[in-house]
């Protein structure tokens, strides 16, 4: 069982003052699957992500990634261990080109950040790798475009590309389809499925859109008011009465 788990969280809590955004959450994310974390607005999904990736320090609890305790490690350390993430709001390097967005992550991953005296252009291998990633995302022809000029959906893809460039073992996507049109959402879903099949990376995503969740997740975790309400296969979650209650019925059928 242990070797099948990539991320294991035990009794995790995060309090802001007296308010517990996350309360005593214990869960496992299995390796080689797509797991979704769902929950109504304010359920604590983003806070959970921020605690796991090291933006916030947990109030109590343990986080184990690939058999190694990472509780309280800062983001740059969790990232180097193979924990990639994307953000709910577009969080890319807007004034840099699309290629540079990906290259920055590649430079970091390959440990070339402190190379001061060799031109970036001399790093053929990095450029090629960036090109491959952009090709995978379908953005190869936009490589030289300044990122802020991209359409919203494309910016979100760059966001995923930055995370992918870090060669993550586990990639945590925070609402990858937030704010997208139906067409953009379809493209993103296809992209995630394609990346999953091609790379075999474990995906762990939060998502609002139930249609998306039920179409791609192998396993679903439900967070409600900071606590884990249920976990199981999509079928189990769909038929779980407590989950249905938390969602006021209705929307799970979408």
């Amino acid at each position: 069982m242990e070797d099948r788990t990539i991320l294991s969280v035990e009794n995790l809590s995060k309090a802001f003052g007296k308010f517990y955004a996350i309360k005593d959450v214990t869960l496992q994310v299995p390796k080689g699957e797509i797991t979704a974390l769902i929950g109504p607005n304010g359920a604590g999904k983003t806070t959970f992500y921020n605690v796991v990736t090291g933006k916030y320090k947990p109030t109590t609890g343990r986080i184990v990634f690939e058999g190694r305790e990472i509780t309280g490690l800062p983001p740059h350390k969790t990232a180097r261990l193979g924990l990639g993430r994307s953000f709910q709001i577009t969080n890319i390097f807007l004034e840099n080109t699309v290629e540079e967005n990906i290259l920055a992550a590649l430079v970091a991953y390959h440990g070339r950040g402190l190379s001061l005296f060799r031109g970036l252009n001399a790093y053929r291998d990095l450029k090629e790798e960036a090109h491959e990633i952009l090709e995978m995302l379908g953005l190869a022809d936009r490589a030289r475009e300044v990122a802020k000029n991209l359409a919203y959906g494309d910016k979100r893809l760059v966001e995923i590309g930055i995370a992918m460039a870090g060669h993550p073992k586990l990639i945590m996507l925070d609402e990858p389809t937030a704010g997208m049109t139906p067409e953009e959402t379809d493209r993103m879903v296809a992209m995630i499925q394609g990346l999953f099949q091609e790379t075999g990376i474990t995906f762990f995503l939060t998502e609002h859109d139930m249609k998306v969740v039920f179409s791609i997740a192998h396993r679903i975790l439900v967070l409600h008011q900071g606590s884990l309400l249920a976990q199981g296969s999509p079928e189990e979650i769909r038929n779980n009465p407590r989950v249905r209650e938390a969602y006021l019925g209705g929307s799970l059928d979408a």
Partner: peptide, 21 residues
């Protein structure tokens, strides 16, 4: 240099840079 790219990326979005390691 690659270092310069990291600097420019920090200018754009320092937090994001910490999440690429």
């Amino acid at each position: 240099s690659p270092f310069g790219l990291i600097l420019r990326s920090m200018r754009e979005n320092a937090e994001r840079v910490s999440f690429i390691g």
